[in-house]
Design a protein around this nucleic acid. Structure first.
Lengths: 206, 206
DNA sequence: GTCTATAGAATGATAGAC
DNA sequence: GTCTATCATTCTATAGAC
C-alpha cells in the first residue's frame, strides 16, 4: 500500500500537538497578556515540561509566529464571511458591514489584535512566510475598501485611523461593552461624506 | 533667622536629585521602551549604584508615578499654551488648533503618550494624588472640546477615537513623519460637520 | 519525545557597613 | 546617602539520560 505509514502517523500526531500548543498559547496570552507568555506555564497547560516544547518549536518566537499566521488567516476568513451574506447591498450598507466586521474582529480578541496590528512584542519579527501571508491579507482588505470608494492613500489613512481609533478606545476604556462600537455607523456615514467630497470622480477610473 | 537651614538645604538637594532621577528615567524609557526601564541602567545614568536610588524612591513604580504626574502637568501647560496665542479665532480655527495641539503633544513623545493615555505597564497603578491630577487635567481638556461644540458623550467619544486613531497610526506606522498628522484639519472639518448634524441646538444651552 | 539537571542572564529589592 | 554583598525570583534555552 502507501509507503511509510508510521512516518505519516507521526507527522499527523506531531501536527496535532503543535496545534494544541498554539491553542494553549492563545489561552495563556488572553489570561496574562501577550508578553506574559511563559514556557513554564505553557508546558503545564499542555501537560509536559517546558523544555519538551522545544521538540515542537525551536523558540518562543516561533510560537508567536504560528499565532501570527493563524491570526491573519482567521482575519481573511472573518472578512470574507462578513460580506458573503449580503447580496449586492447599497454602498452605504457595504461600507458599514465592512467597518463593523473589522472592528468586531479586533475587539472580539484584543490580544490577537495586539499581535496582528500593533507592534508590541519586543524583538518579535514575523517570519518571511507569515509576513507574506499578512501582506496578502492586508491587500485583500485594501481592495474591500477600494470597492467602497476609498482609493487614494490619504483617504485610506483617514479610514484606518478612524476604525483603529474606535477599536482602541473600545478595548482600552470599555472592554466587553459597545460604547464605541455603536458609533461605527455614524463614523462610516461621516467618512463616506468626506470621501465623496475629497475624491475626484475623474481619477476614480484610473 | 529662619529655623533649620541645614534641613532646608538637604530637602532642596534631595528634590534636585529626585528630579535628576526622573529626568534620566525619561531618557531611558525613550531609548529602551516604557517597560525596559531597569534600576541598574538608571543608577548608571545618574552616577550611582542601583541600590542607592531606593533612598529617593521606595520602588520602581514610584518613579513611574512621578513620571505620570509630570506628564499630565506638561499636558496641561501644552494645551494652555496652544490656545493662548489665538485671540478669539473662528470656531473651525479653534477646533483645528486644539486637535493639532493634542496630536502634536502625543506624537512628540510616544513613550509619554503610552504612559499617560494607554494602559501598558503591567501592574502600574497611579497613586491617588497623581490620579487626581490626571482627572483634573482631563476635565480641562473636555471643557476645551465643549467650547468647540462637543458636548454629548457620544460626540466626545467619536472625537477622541478619531484623534487617538490618528495619533496611534502616526506613531506606529510613520514615526517622526507627518503622514497622518497632515490629515488633522480634514478630520476636524469632517467631525465638525458631523457634530453640527448630531447636536440638537436646543440642548446646547443646557 | 519526554524527562532531570542546569546553565546563564536578567530583574527588583533588602541588610548592614561606613 | 552611598556603598558592597546578596537574596530571591523569573525567564529562555541546552545537554544528556532514558
Amino acid at each position: 500500500m502507501s509507503g511509510q505509514p508510521n512516518s505519516d502517523r507521526r507527522t499527523v500526531r506531531r501536527q496535532e500537538t503543535r496545534r494544541e500548543i498554539v491553542g494553549a498559547s492563545w489561552d495563556l496570552v488572553r489570561e496574562h497578556g501577550l508578553a506574559g507568555l511563559a514556557m513554564r506555564d505553557l508546558g503545564e497547560r499542555v501537560g509536559m515540561r517546558a523544555q519538551s516544547i522545544y521538540s515542537y518549536f525551536a523558540s518562543k518566537h516561533e510560537i508567536y509566529d504560528a499565532m501570527f499566521l493563524e491570526g491573519y488567516q482567521a482575519f481573511a476568513i472573518w472578512m470574507a464571511d462578513a460580506v458573503d451574506g449580503d447580496a449586492a447591498p447599497d454602498p452605504t450598507g457595504a461600507a458599514r458591514a465592512t467597518a463593523r466586521a473589522f472592528v468586531e474582529f479586533c475587539t472580539s480578541d484584543p490580544v490577537r489584535y495586539q499581535l496582528l496590528f500593533q507592534r508590541t512584542i519586543p524583538d518579535f519579527v514575523p517570519s518571511p512566510d507569515s509576513y507574506a501571508v499578512a501582506v496578502g491579507v492586508y491587500a485583500e482588505f485594501r481592495e474591500r475598501l477600494s470597492a467602497i470608494g476609498v482609493r487614494d492613500q490619504a483617504t485610506l489613512d483617514l479610514w484606518t485611523a478612524m476604525l483603529t481609533g474606535i477599536t482602541d478606545q473600545q478595548i482600552s476604556n470599555d472592554p466587553g461593552g459597545d460604547r464605541w462600537k455603536q458609533l461605527i455607523d455614524r463614523a462610516v456615514d461621516m467618512l463616506l461624506a468626506d470621501t465623496r467630497t475629497h475624491t475626484n470622480p475623474e481619477s476614480e477610473k484610473a
